[in-house]
Nucleic acid binder design. Structure first.
Lengths: 356, 356
DNA sequence: TTGTATGCGTTATCAG
DNA sequence: CTGATAACGCATACAA
């Protein structure tokens, strides 16, 4: 069973044709007479030849058909948030069309990790706001390989796939304002690297693009809304953040805007566990609009972002670059989707709005 | 910028040494004098040579340093359950030690999916109980490439990584029985392909190994416990299943054993939404013991399975095969972890136990 | 410690 | 439509 595997040369010899002809039978790049094709196919079958060795083929072609996807340090962190997985799924779909597979890479600064420096990839996709983004980018560019960044702070000349985060968050904020809410609190995504849960101070800089942009959008509508940064995009973190918000100083907010659906679910649960009803006592909004486990039977009021589309757009950008075309960045936009987690604020208990 | 990239030959020429010497400087396989090393490194830097072309290297070596991971049709389905992602993380870790990356492959029966048939992988890992497992297996074996199956029904001769599902489920069932429970219901994982939520009839065959084994373990302790199959391992499906169970015929169970933590969380929530308290009115157990989002502040009583270890074991099996050694299957075992979702059954309301 | 020679398995090119 | 030829870029056995 460990004899040398048959090569295309073996097949050609047995079929009585030239190796190049046999090759063409498999690649289909050039017309071949039915007769010879049949002979080659028969020979291949007889020898158990299942097609060209991908290693040799990629050397010859100068392409491996592999796209490297760089996600954070641990896969489980990257896959925790459904937005990421859906995006990845879109990417997989887009790359499958190009006949390319996804090579998962962690950007660990560790020892010999194969990673960026030695992976046989034709292109790379950097996803998320990894702290090491700059390093990764440098390593890849040194190799002269095309790269696309999804939702990250890449530099000049790198095509980026981004979302209209600020405007989108403003849209949903206006929805809340139009319902009559005035006391609103915000629960944001990770604001610093590494993440640290806590209130976001007035002038503090925010290290993560997405967080900063969405926060700005909310503040466009509610300039003074206090914001609490969660430690991660998860239900539990949303729960903890909401507890902090509800226990916070000043009058209790009548609406809480979360920067992700996962956080929103946590917020909802915390509100409920505090003995209040969503949306009667507190309205809650999310952001993402992908399927979130555990919301039922409620339906989240949220902004639907085209997560799968992000992946597909990255795929498109990559094929463009591979084809020698100019890489094009892309700005995708989100859509408002009403649910039943928002409603008018409860009747004010006699405190004039101006006292807030 | 699109001039031919420098090769090791260029570097060698500039450094005034032979190509093989330059090669050795990068691979480190043979001692090189400091002087020449320095010259080579300098030349490389000057030419912007960042190391050997992985494509050429893999052709020469006969290894690509890539392991293909075949997951279901859509990535998002595979990554929905934290057990899978944790396992994948363990696998990634194991493979990183072997200096190998993970190539994500979908087993879509689609058109020309590159996948199994043409991926430059040194080995494959099939994960989960994909319906197409047999096909995938055949395609891979035809290529003569090592393969490992995790938690799936592979045939003879294929190393498998499995869990002591039956015994583990029996352990937790005994815990529940020892607390005094007698009326117990089961919520199982997907029982058929494609999945269909509903009661599992007496003699009906169960298509999915994991489900069958855990069910058997529970029945070892509670032979007559009714079982409801969820449509997937998710909180929402667990919620729905529990609703069905609570509305089912006969007296209400005092304990519900779920086959996954995600299902258990859904069950808990359904129980609570029905106005009951966990564990006072109904005890609930899970299975998996990985971090589940949204359980807080409760702690699930569950069986902890070594999910990451499964991945690492697969990695070990692969390196063994790659090294020409005999592949070894592995049976991992789970550990009981008490939480606060189980307790003694509520005081019987006058119905003698024998009447159940 | 360094250099020489060879081939890994394909496929693009071009001439028949 | 088919065949001969020449790389693709590298790493190893072996000789020096």
């Amino acid at each position: 069973m460990n004899v040398r595997r048959a090569t295309i040369a073996d097949v050609a010899r047995l079929a009585g044709v030239a190796a190049s002809t046999a090759s063409v039978v498999f690649s289909g790049k050039t017309p071949v007479s039915d007769a010879t094709r049949a002979r080659v196919v028969a020979a291949a079958e007889q020898l158990g030849y299942t097609g060209p060795d991908p290693r040799a083929a990629s050397l010859r072609r100068g392409r491996s058909g592999i796209v490297g996807v760089v996600i954070g340090d641990r896969l489980q962190n990257a896959f925790r948030d459904p937005v990421t997985t859906v995006m990845l799924d879109g990417l997989a779909e887009g790359m499958a069309e190009q006949d390319a597979g996804l090579l998962l890479l962690r950007d660990g600064a560790e020892s010999g990790e194969p990673g960026l420096r030695s992976a046989p990839a034709d292109a790379f996709v950097l996803v998320g706001c990894s702290g090491r983004l700059a390093d990764s980018l440098a390593a890849i560019r040194a190799r002269g390989i095309p790269v696309v960044v999804i939702e990250g702070d890449a530099g000049e000349g790198v095509p980026q796939i981004r979302l209209d985060n600020r405007e989108a968050q403003a849209v949903i904020a206006r929805h809340v304002r139009d319902l009559g809410h005035e006391r609103v609190a915000l629960v944001t995504l990770q604001a610093s690297v590494p993440p640290h849960a806590g209130w976001i101070a007035g002038g503090a800089p925010i290290a993560v693009d997405v967080t900063r942009d969405r926060l700005a959008g909310a503040r466009d509508v509610f300039p003074d809304a206090p914001a609490f940064a969660a430690g991660a995009s998860s239900i539990d973190q949303g729960y903890a953040a909401a507890e902090a918000v509800l226990a916070g100083p000043g009058p209790r907010p009548t609406a809480i805007l979360a920067q992700s659906d996962l956080l929103a679910v946590g917020v909802i649960r915390a509100v409920q566990d505090a003995g209040m009803v969503v949306p009667d006592d507190v309205s809650v909004t999310g952001f993402d609009g992908v399927w979130v486990d555990g919301v039922a039977p409620l339906t989240l009021t949220t902004m639907v972002q085209p997560a799968a589309e992000k992946g597909r757009a990255a795929g498109a950008a990559i094929s463009a670059m591979l084809a020698g075309a100019e890489p094009e960045s892309m700005l995708l936009s989100s859509a408002f989707r009403p649910g039943n987690t928002t409603g008018p604020p409860p009747i004010s208990r006699g405190e004039p709005a101006s006292s807030v």
